[in-house]
Simulated scan of single mutants.
Amino acid sequence: MNVLIIEDDDDICQLYSIWLEENRHDYIIAKNYEDGILEYVKSIQQGDEGYESDNNIFDLVVLDYDLPSKDMSSNQNGLHIAKEILELKGDQRIMFASAWPKKAFVEYVSTLKSVPEVLPKPFEKEEFINLAEKINLYDIAKKFTKQLREMKNPNSPDVDIKSLESLFKLMNNARREFLQKDNDKSDDVDFIE
């Protein structure tokens, strides 16, 4: 698996590095909005130039919700990066690792008419790796995204918030159910806050 992590916290980046290396996944870490987009565009361009696509195209993009810009003068909402990525590759798998999961989820769905995977912080290594490696929830998200995009008025910025909250609960319940099936807890105590 090839993962792009866009996260500005050094400690969290170090945990991602350790966890992904332990599980033999390739990854690139970008610490701001501009570098994240640059890495993603490079992966698309290398794939277009005929390089081995398995090593260049990202299977998963993990975003923090709040990200600094390169000059550190302003924070960018992770939605901006998600929007740019989806414009480049409409079916890209995106996971928000966020302390504000409901806010990220609702804004993402209402803005981009797409359903992200959301991993609430804090989370443990097993939860992150299990969710990253399994595509069950991604398949559910793709199904709901298709339904959202087939709405009668896809240009309407208004999306029923109660429906989004129900969808968010459904995704969270599916995530919990999925994780309980693979709940072989080890003695590792690393987690992200």
Rank of each mutant, 00 (worst) to 15 (best):
M1H: 08
N2F: 08
V3T: 05
I5W: 02
D11Q: 05
Y16N: 01
L20K: 06
E22D: 14
N23M: 07
N23S: 12
R24T: 09
D26P: 00
K31I: 14
E34H: 04
E34R: 05
E34P: 01
D35H: 10
G36C: 12
E39H: 11
E39I: 00
Q46E: 15
G47L: 01
D48I: 00
S53G: 05
I57K: 04
L60M: 13
V62A: 01
L63F: 03
D64A: 12
Y65G: 00
D66E: 04
P68D: 14
D71K: 06
S73K: 14
S73W: 10
N77V: 13
L79D: 12
L79V: 13
L79R: 12
A82E: 11
K83F: 08
I85C: 04
I85Q: 10
E87P: 04
L88M: 15
G90F: 10
Q92F: 03
R93A: 12
F96R: 05
F96N: 05
F96D: 07
F96A: 05
F96I: 03
W100D: 15
P101L: 02
K102D: 01
V106G: 00
Y108R: 02
V109R: 00
V115Y: 03
P120H: 02
F123A: 08
I135Q: 01
Y138L: 00
I140K: 04
A141R: 02
A141H: 00
K143E: 15
T145V: 10
L148R: 00
E150Q: 10
D158M: 09
V159S: 07
V159T: 11
D160N: 13
I161V: 15
E165N: 11
L167R: 05
L167A: 01
L167T: 04
M171G: 03
R175I: 04
L179R: 06
K181Q: 11
D182G: 03
D184W: 05
D184G: 02
D184R: 07
D184T: 10
K185S: 12
S186P: 03
S186R: 02
S186T: 14
